[in-house]
Each structure stands twice: as structure tokens, then as C-alpha cells.
């Protein structure tokens, strides 16, 4: 299991950062152009196929990026093996649950279309 050892985690941290950066730029460009953001427009944007997929991708990248960050902090400051393992497991489960929650939200409101 070398997925999170050595350079893999480091590369994954960079890749997720680039994904987040791209989606934030896309989101900012969308929200800043066009009419001001009210409920109608937000709902239409977020529940379209593009919107829903990108929001899920955004949260998935956020969860992964966040977990690698927490792992780095744990590797630096927490040296008791069980405590470190417990923290990483709990944070991992919580972050995963948040991503699942977002998937459920987007599925419940999904409208389809472009």
C-alpha cells in the first residue's frame, strides 16, 4: 500500500490543489458574469448536470486535499502511533461522510439538463 507514502501523497496534494483552483476560478467567473446571484439562478446553476457534477468533484477534491493536509500535520506533531492512527481514521471517515452527504444533496435536487 504505497498510495499515501512518499511522492504519491505529495503529487495527489498538488493535483487536488490544481483541480480546486480550476473549479474556484470557473465558479468565480460564472458568478461574477451574468445577472446577480439570487435563489433562482443559484438553484438552476447548481442542479444542472454540469453544476451538480462539478460541485461533487469540488467536494471530493476538497476532502482528499484536506485529509492529506491533516496527515502531514499528524506526521509532524503527533508521535503516539495509536493516537495518530485514530485521528487519521476519524478525520478520514468524517471527510468521506461529508462528501457522501454532498452527493446525496445534489442527487435530491438534481434537475438534469445543461
Amino acid at each position: 500500500m504505497r498510495l499515501f507514502l512518499g511522492q504519491r501523497a505529495w503529487v495527489l496534494q498538488r493535483v487536488t490543489a490544481l483541480v480546486l483552483l480550476f473549479l474556484l476560478a470557473l465558479g468565480a467567473a460564472t458568478l461574477l458574469t451574468g445577472p446577480p446571484l439570487d435563489y433562482e439562478r443559484w438553484h438552476a446553476l447548481a442542479t444542472s448536470t454540469h453544476g451538480a457534477v462539478l460541485i461533487v468533484v469540488f467536494f471530493a477534491a476538497l476532502g482528499l486535499h484536506g485529509w492529506i493536509g491533516v496527515r502531514d500535520i499528524a506526521l509532524d506533531y503527533i508521535h503516539a502511533p495509536m493516537l495518530r492512527l485514530a485521528l487519521l481514521a476519524v478525520v478520514g471517515v468524517l471527510l468521506f461522510a461529508i462528501v457522501i452527504r454532498v452527493v446525496l444533496t445534489m442527487a435530491a435536487h438534481f434537475a438534469g439538463g445543461a
Binding site: Y39, W42, T47, G69, I73
Partner: peptide, 29 residues
């Protein structure tokens, strides 16, 4: 590092806000 921790901690609230914002106009407001 500190800002990263704050952002991870705010992630549940962000997911919650996303959910609420799509519910109704009142919750969006």
C-alpha cells in the same frame, strides 16, 4: 497550516450550507 486546519473544520458547515441553499428561497436568504 493554520488556515488549512480552519478550512477543514469549516467543511461540514460548507456542505450544510450547500444543502440548505438549495432547499428554498427563504433558506437561501
Amino acid at each position: 497550516r493554520i488556515s488549512g486546519v480552519l478550512l477543514v473544520l469549516s467543511l461540514p458547515l460548507l456542505a450544510l450550507a450547500l444543502d440548505r441553499s438549495l432547499h428554498s428561497e427563504a433558506e437561501f436568504a
